[in-house]
């Protein structure tokens, strides 16, 4: 299952955050407040979810941005996830823990998928690819500014592909179709921020052999 989909740019500013499971604050984060976090899950509204999310994003960003080019698309677990993950004894429940962080880098953007071990790592890379291609079709040569000004469309496209952490569609045409069905109603003046010009994401689409 997919736990979260994140998009942020080269300087770590989030462009899209979508969490399919709720973030549970864990003891390292606020050790004093949550001594019994294991027993009372999700009942802590005094620590905002958003704070944990931001922390996770920044951790992933620091991991991702330090990687040399040409390295593989899989990240070691960020500390926030790792420390909570390793405390578990590997049991049948390990399938529920997010254990895989897959990312792809396009021009100025990083696309990240956090998922459990039931997803196939290589397939996730393809999934990101499909998503980006779908965006590219929707925006006709997508660039980061499109994402900023039309981020609702981002969400719409994502929800055509993933619902509740489960992938429902992997075919590009259908995704685009689905968004456009909504888009007719929601059509805005597309690409209002086109001033910056396309950033050449199209060039990255050549995907070798897969």
């Amino acid at each position: 299952m997919i736990s979260a989909v994140l998009v942020f740019n080269n300087s770590g500013q989030p462009r899209l955050t979508k969490f399919y499971t709720q973030l549970v604050p864990f003891p390292l984060f606020v050790p004093v407040l949550f001594p019994h976090h294991q027993l009372k899950l999700g009942s802590y509204d005094d620590i905002s979810d958003t704070a944990v999310q931001q922390r996770l994003i920044s951790e992933i960003f620091s991991l991702v941005s330090n990687r040399p080019s040409g390295s593989c698309n899989f990240l070691p677990l960020p500390p926030l996830l790792a420390s909570s993950g390793t405390s578990h004894t590997p049991s049948s429940e390990h399938n529920d823990t997010p254990s895989l962080v897959t990312y792809r880098h396009y021009a100025t953007l990083y696309f990240i998928i956090i998922s459990t071990s039931t997803e196939s790592p290589l397939a996730l890379i393809d999934l990101i690819q499909v998503y980006v291609e779908a965006l590219d079709r929707l925006f006709e040569n997508v660039c980061e500014l499109d994402l900023i000004f039309n981020f609702e469309t981002l969400h719409a496209a994502l929800s055509e592909m993933i619902v509740g952490g489960v992938v429902i569609e992997t075919q590009l045409d259908r995704v685009v179709e689905g968004v456009k069905a909504q888009g007719k109603v929601a059509k805005r003046p597309v690409n209002e921020g086109r001033g910056a010009g396309p950033l050449g994401m199209g060039g990255n689409f050549a995907w070798p052999g897969r």
């Binding site: 299952m1 736990s3 979260a4 969490f19 499971t21 709720q22 973030l23 549970v24 864990f26 976090h37 294991q38 027993l39 899950l41 944990v52 996770l56 926030l80 996830l81 909570s84 993950g85 405390s87 578990h88 429940e93 529920d96 823990t97 997010p98 956090i114 952490g165």
Partner: peptide, 13 residues
């Protein structure tokens, strides 16, 4: 078992 749930984990118990 009452296990610690990790971040982003789905409770499917």
């Amino acid at each position: 078992k009452l296990k610690g749930k990790s971040l982003l984990q789905v409770d499917s118990s």
